[in-house]
């Protein structure tokens, strides 16, 4: 098993946190994992992306050039990374903030209105966790209990009150993606 992820958006969207949750879920399921941040100097508003590798074997390159799975949180990131996704890979797009299309017919594209879903549950900051939930359904490498344990591990001590909110957002993401797939709605380009 080998998964190479690229998670990209701007600072403040919880990109790096989402990547860490994924990496920890990998660790807790006995895999080898790496996580690399890459972000601009701004805490909020600058570009942010991180690369996560989860593997049965020792991770070769921790730098991800052609991800199996890309989680794209804004339009500039789509323009920057859209072409790099591995053929037969998957792209999850935060559709609230991306009005453009990804012109690829060799990958599966899933549009998730994660921001709207998060706002509906009263926690606009949790769009990243909605995306993570959708990922769990679309590419079921981990089960919910592993993600739950990872969220608890990664959340710093002064943010413990967010654990429940974040886990609820994960569940919303799972539900949305399940409906999307079971309801026959799957946005596929080309």
């Amino acid at each position: 098993m080998l998964r190479e992820y690229n998670i990209a958006g701007f600072g403040g969207q919880g990109i790096l946190y989402l990547g860490q949750v994924l990496a920890y879920a990998g660790l807790l399921s006995g895999k080898q994992t790496t996580w690399i941040p890459s972000y601009g100097p701004e805490m909020r508003g600058g570009t942010a992306n991180c690369m996560v590798v989860i593997s049965d074997d020792k991770v070769r390159s921790p730098l991800v050039y052609n991800p199996n799975v890309a989680l794209i949180f804004n339009k500039p990131s789509l323009e920057k990374f859209g072409a790099d996704i591995m053929p037969n890979g998957k792209a999850l797009l935060l559709s609230d903030l991306i009005d453009g299309e990804l012109d690829r017919d060799d990958i599966e594209i899933f549009k998730i209105p994660a921001k709207t879903i998060a706002e509906e549950m009263g926690s606009a900051m949790s769009a990243n966790m909605v995306m993570l939930g959708a990922l769990l359904t679309i590419d079921p490498v981990f089960d919910y209990s592993q993600i739950e344990a990872a969220v608890k591990k990664v959340t710093p001590s002064h943010r413990q009150h967010l654990i429940e909110i974040n886990l609820n957002a994960v569940k919303k993401g799972i539900e949305y993606a399940e409906q999307m797939i079971n309801g026959g709605y799957k946005e596929q380009e080309g």
Binding site: A23, T34, V59
Partner: peptide, 9 residues
């Protein structure tokens, strides 16, 4: 900087 700032198991 890569080895320094990356996280790994």
């Amino acid at each position: 900087g890569i080895i320094g700032q990356m996280m790994e198991s």
